[in-house]
Each structure stands twice: as C-alpha cells, then as structure tokens.
C-alpha cells in the first residue's frame, strides 16, 4: 500500500495511506505535484503543513479515516445541497467526535479543514460554530468567543443604525 508522510507545523509525522490522504483536496494536489517532480515513482511523498499543529492534524486524519468510504463531496456545491449534505452527514459518530472539543479547537479544525479541502468536516464544524452565533445577541456572542468590544464612543451605536437599515428594509 502506497504511503505518504504528512508532517505537522510542530514536527510530528503521520504515516497515512495515499488513498486516505487523497480524500483531502489539498493533499491530493500535493501528492500529484510530488509525483510529477520526482524521478523515482516508488519514492514516498513527504508533505509539510505549516499551519496545522499535530493535535489538529490528528483529528482531521481521524475524521478522514472514519469517513473514508463516504462519497467525496464536490467542493463547489450550491448552498442548498451543501446544507442538505451537512445534515445528512452528521452521524452519531460525528456528534461524539465533536462533543468533547473546546470551541477553540473546533475553530482550528475549521481553518484546517478549509486548508486541506475536506468539505464534509468543514460543514459539520462550521455548523457547530454557527449554532453559537445564530439567534444570539451581540453580547452573548462576545461572551461565547471571549471577545471585547473595541468600538469607541458612538461607533457601536452607528453600526447598529446601519444594521437596522439592512434588516428592516
């Protein structure tokens, strides 16, 4: 079985099958680039990912492993289908997978899934973070994400006026 070494930003190496790695659009492109540039077709590709640390990379690979037999979702699906798939794909396993994670880890997963082009994972993680925003007030969102308002004077009031224009029209 052909393997590929995927190395995280903090130097941990993961040895995964190329079949599994190719379920990420980004890794697939990288493997193909490596093939073209390498003379030896038997050589094992090595891919360094500078923006994903080991803990997150492990989670992504774990998710890929679990979903390795799902049909690959095209990246540029229209919104309606994308949403339908996300709901369909949210299995009990996914829920258990995401349940123990901190919000910060989930946000890192979103960036990683986006970078590695793993649509299914991107969908379920985005949905989780979305649930912390939809239907909440501004202050509740700030508390959930530990954000502080950096508006000065009446800037916030001004923004609120602008928003009202959009929402009421």
């Amino acid at each position: 079985m052909a393997l590929v070494r995927v190395i995280s930003s903090d130097g941990a190496a993961f040895l995964v099958s190329q079949r599994l790695a190719k379920r990420s659009g980004k890794l697939k492109t990288e493997i193909e680039t490596f093939r073209k540039s390498s003379d030896n077709s038997e050589a094992q590709p090595e891919i360094r990912i500078v923006t994903i640390r080991a803990e997150i990379l492990r989670l992504v690979l774990q998710w890929l492993q679990q979903h390795q037999n799902d049909p690959v979702l095209p990246a540029n699906q229209n919104e309606q289908d994308g949403r339908g798939d996300a709901e369909m794909g949210q299995s009990q396993w996914d829920r258990d997978f995401l349940a123990p994670m901190d919000l910060g880890i989930v946000m890192e997963l979103i960036l990683a899934a986006n970078h590695l082009e793993v649509k299914g994972l991107l969908d379920i993680t985005c949905k989780l973070v979305e649930s912390k925003i939809t239907g909440r007030t501004v202050d509740e969102i700030r508390t959930a994400f530990k954000l502080k308002s950096d508006f000065k004077g009446n800037e916030e009031e001004q923004t609120r006026l602008e928003n009202r224009w959009c929402v009421e029209n």
């Binding site: 946000m107 960036l111 925003i133 939809t134 239907g135 929402v167």
Partner: peptide
C-alpha cells in the same frame, strides 16, 4: 484561542448563519 481565531473563522461560517443574526456580527 476563540478571541484571535474569530476574525479568521467568521468569513468561513457566514454561509451558515441566518441573515438577521449575521448583521449582529457587524457589531
């Protein structure tokens, strides 16, 4: 983590948030 990642994650999740709440994100 949630504080400094928020600006990066927001554009990615905008497609999932309903319109009325989305405007809250501006404030």
């Amino acid at each position: 983590k949630t504080t400094y990642l928020f600006p990066f994650v927001l554009p990615l999740i905008m497609g999932h948030v309903e319109r009325k709440t989305l405007f809250n994100c501006r404030s």
